[in-house]
Measured scan of single mutants.
Amino acid sequence: HMTFVALYDYVASGETDLSFKKGERLQIVNNTEGDWWLAHSLTTGRTGYIPSNYVAPSD
């Protein structure tokens, strides 16, 4: 899985979304859904959809 880092805080707007904090590391499970990607937080262990423009590839 690709690892990304959150650029901003995001508060989930629905049950399927994943809240995260700036700097949180996320594994992308599925990024074929356009602007919303299914991600797994390496910080909280939770999985949900995130806005793709809130994250950047982590080196």
Rank of each mutant, 00 (worst) to 15 (best):
S19E: 05
S13D: 08
G34E: 11
E24L: 01
Y10I: 02
Y8W: 13
E24T: 03
R46P: 00
D9N: 07
A56D: 06
K22Y: 04
M2V: 12
V29Y: 13
F20W: 01
K21Q: 11
V11A: 09
D9W: 02
V29N: 05
Y49L: 12
V55R: 01
D17A: 08
S41Q: 05
A6D: 00
N31I: 13
E33T: 13
Y49S: 04
A39I: 04
G14K: 14
W36S: 05
Y8A: 09
K22E: 06
A56H: 08
N30A: 11
S52N: 06
S19H: 04
Y8H: 08
F4D: 00
D59K: 10
V55M: 06
L26G: 00
G45T: 03
Y8M: 10
T43Y: 08
A6N: 01
E24V: 01
H1G: 14
N53T: 12
K22M: 08
T43D: 15
P51H: 06
V11N: 11
T3W: 14
T43S: 13
T47N: 07
G45A: 05
R46K: 13
E24S: 02
T32H: 10
V11I: 13
Y8P: 00
T16F: 15
S41F: 01
A6R: 00
R46G: 08
A6P: 01
S19T: 09
T44C: 03
K21P: 01
V29A: 07
D59N: 13
D59V: 12
D35H: 14
G34C: 09
D17I: 08
T43E: 13
L26H: 00
D9P: 04
Q27Y: 15
S58V: 15
A39V: 12
Q27E: 12
G48W: 01
I50D: 01
D35T: 12
R25F: 15
L26R: 00
A39R: 00
K22H: 05
D17Y: 14
G45R: 06
Y8F: 12
T44P: 00
S52G: 07
D9C: 05
V55Q: 02
D59L: 13
H40M: 14
N31V: 12
H40T: 15
G34W: 09
W37N: 02
K22F: 05
T16L: 14
S19N: 05
G34H: 12
V55I: 08
M2D: 10
W37F: 06
G23Q: 02
Y49F: 11
G45M: 06
N30Y: 09
P51S: 03
D17P: 03
T44D: 04
Y54F: 12
D9Q: 03
G23D: 05
N31L: 12
T16S: 13
V55W: 04
E33M: 14
Y54H: 08
S41K: 02
Y10C: 04
D35P: 11
A56N: 06
L42R: 04
T43L: 12
S52L: 04
T3V: 15
Y49P: 01
S19G: 08
T44I: 02
A12F: 02
P57Q: 10
Y8G: 04
S52C: 09
N53G: 11
W37Q: 03
V55H: 03
E15M: 10
A12W: 02
L7R: 04
Y10E: 00
W37L: 07
G48F: 04
R25I: 15
F20C: 04
G23T: 02
F4M: 11
F20I: 09
V5R: 04
G48Q: 01
L18D: 01
I28R: 06
L38S: 02
P57I: 10
T43G: 06
S58Y: 14
D35L: 12
R46I: 07
Y10L: 03
P57H: 09
V55P: 02
L7Y: 03
N53L: 10
F20T: 01
M2G: 10
S58W: 15
R46E: 09
G48R: 01
L38A: 03
F4T: 04
G34Q: 13
Y10W: 07
Y54I: 06
G23P: 00
D9H: 04
A6K: 00
I28E: 01
S19C: 05
K21C: 10
E15C: 11
L18G: 02
R25Q: 11
